[in-house]
């Protein structure tokens, strides 16, 4: 059972009802079960923020690093113990803002890591401030007149390297999400999975959604599968682009 991989005794989790991280956690546990990953061959490294707490709910050794520092920790763990499956799970603020320099250089060094980015486009834990992935003009508590800048383009950032693996999916598209995670784990280098996810309490309501369910329906309506063989994903396309 995939539930055996989770510390159910610690439930309910710290996350708000309707949070997308719970869905990511369940899908990851299902893929781990499928691939035979457990405490003997896998470790989860997570960063600070709501998503950072995820590592603590798995029945494997987990590390909740400093804010932004998942990648230096994970890369070192993998280098010291190459047989260990090292999965990084963190938020967009952690990976793309405070950890941005590490993302740039870790991707360049291309260690065999799987990075799952719970991308809810906001700093949820601290109350809903704009982050590096917040779309331009979005009103947040720290951008009352609308976010003034274009968000970081994670796909282009990843594709800057000679070798890359970038997957885009959402927590609504669960079969696709699982397939992205599976492929990322199988990829023999740095694999980045950009997972659009909902933060209803500190972002969604301000955007006009009444519930997490409405946000998920929004993902269903707006995100479409990229055409087979696409080399670049459009803004609302889910799929995988890679070059080995």
């Amino acid at each position: 059972m995939f539930k055996d991989l989770l510390k159910l005794e610690l439930f309910p989790t710290t996350w708000c009802p309707g949070c997308g991280i719970g869905q990511l956690m369940i899908q990851l546990a299902m893929v781990m079960e499928e691939l035979g990953l457990d405490h003997t061959n896998c470790t989860i490294i997570s960063g600070v923020g709501c998503t950072g707490r995820l590592a603590g709910y798995f029945n494997v050794d987990g590390v909740y690093t400093l804010h932004g520092r998942t990648l230096p920790v994970a890369e070192a763990v993998k280098l010291v113990n190459p047989s260990l499956e090292v999965i990084v799970v963190s938020g967009d603020g952690d990976l793309a803002s405070i950890g941005g320099n590490h993302l740039l250089h870790c991707a360049r060094r291309n260690p065999n890591l799987t990075v799952l980015c719970n991308n809810n486009q906001v700093y949820g834990l601290t109350g809903g401030q704009a982050g590096p992935t917040t779309p331009r003009d979005t009103k947040t508590v720290s951008s009352p007149a609308g976010a003034p800048y274009d968000p970081v383009n994670l796909q282009n950032l990843m594709k800057a390297g000679a070798k890359y693996f970038y997957a885009k999916t959402t927590v609504y598209h669960q079969v696709h999400l699982r397939s992205c995670v599976r492929e990322a784990i199988a990829w023999p280098g740095f694999a980045f999975v950009d997972i659009t996810s909902q933060c209803i309490e500190n972002n969604g309501r301000r955007l006009g959604f009444n519930s997490a369910y409405e946000m998920l329906l929004h993902f269903r309506r707006t995100y479409k599968r990229a055409p087979e063989g696409a080399e670049t994903l459009g803004p609302y396309e889910i799929g995988i682009v890679r070059k080995g």
């Binding site: 490294i45 590390v63 690093t65 400093l66 520092r69 990648l71 230096p72 920790v73 994970a74 890369e75 070192a76 763990v77 280098l79 010291v80 113990n81 260990l84 320099n101 590490h102 740039l104 250089h105 060094r109």
Partner: peptide, 23 residues
């Protein structure tokens, strides 16, 4: 094992990860 890190923040966190991994 050796990593020439992108900055000292990375280096310090890397030696922590390496230590947890048994080095």
């Amino acid at each position: 094992r050796f990593i020439q890190s992108e900055d000292e923040i990375s280096a310090a966190n890397a030696i922590i990860g390496a230590s947890l991994a048994g080095a």
